[in-house]
Computed example of a mutant assay.
Amino acid sequence: MNKKDAPFRPELVAQLCVEYWKLAAATEKALSVVLASDGKRLVAQLKFSKRQLDVLLQDLGLRLVDFSGERFHPGLAVSVDNPGDFEEDEALVVGKTIEPTVMSDMTVIRLGRVIVAPVKQEEE
């Protein structure tokens, strides 16, 4: 069987999307320190590329889910990189998404990876 006849494998597309997402996030961070003259053009190019990724994912029936800032619960489609840092009954939020979750409708294609943090109590 040659590569043209290879079956479509959503998990490979999911891996590619996650890698692109991480590259885009790192590029966004780097652009925040670039000189203003080059920065605007590069930021626009990055925004365009991210929109293109969203369009391609939609055409494939996939979406990337970034849970940053959401309240964490065991049913969230993520694996936690720092689970031992907190008590089991402690209220937590997703402090940072390391890798987004890749979904197809309501089916998880690839679990995301996150770091959780305690819920900040508002001062009275």
Score class of each variant (00 low, 15 high):
4 K>G: 08
7 P>S: 09
8 F>D: 07
10 P>H: 04
10 P>M: 05
11 E>D: 05
15 Q>T: 10
16 L>F: 07
16 L>Y: 11
18 V>R: 09
20 Y>R: 10
24 A>N: 01
24 A>W: 08
25 A>L: 09
28 E>W: 11
28 E>I: 02
28 E>V: 01
29 K>W: 11
30 A>H: 15
30 A>K: 13
34 V>D: 09
35 L>G: 07
36 A>Y: 06
39 G>D: 07
40 K>R: 04
42 L>F: 15
46 L>M: 13
47 K>H: 10
48 F>H: 05
48 F>Q: 12
52 Q>N: 05
52 Q>C: 02
54 D>I: 02
54 D>Q: 11
56 L>T: 06
56 L>V: 02
57 L>D: 02
61 G>L: 15
62 L>K: 06
62 L>E: 00
64 L>Q: 03
64 L>E: 06
65 V>C: 10
65 V>D: 07
68 S>R: 15
69 G>H: 13
69 G>E: 08
70 E>M: 15
70 E>Q: 13
74 P>C: 01
76 L>Y: 09
79 S>H: 11
79 S>A: 10
81 D>P: 01
86 F>L: 00
87 E>K: 01
87 E>V: 00
88 E>H: 00
91 A>G: 02
95 G>H: 13
96 K>P: 00
96 K>A: 01
97 T>L: 00
100 P>I: 03
101 T>M: 08
105 D>R: 12
106 M>R: 12
107 T>R: 13
108 V>R: 12
108 V>P: 10
111 L>W: 03
111 L>T: 00
112 G>F: 12
115 I>T: 11
119 V>Y: 04
121 Q>A: 15
122 E>R: 10
122 E>F: 13
123 E>H: 06
124 E>G: 13
124 E>N: 04
124 E>M: 05
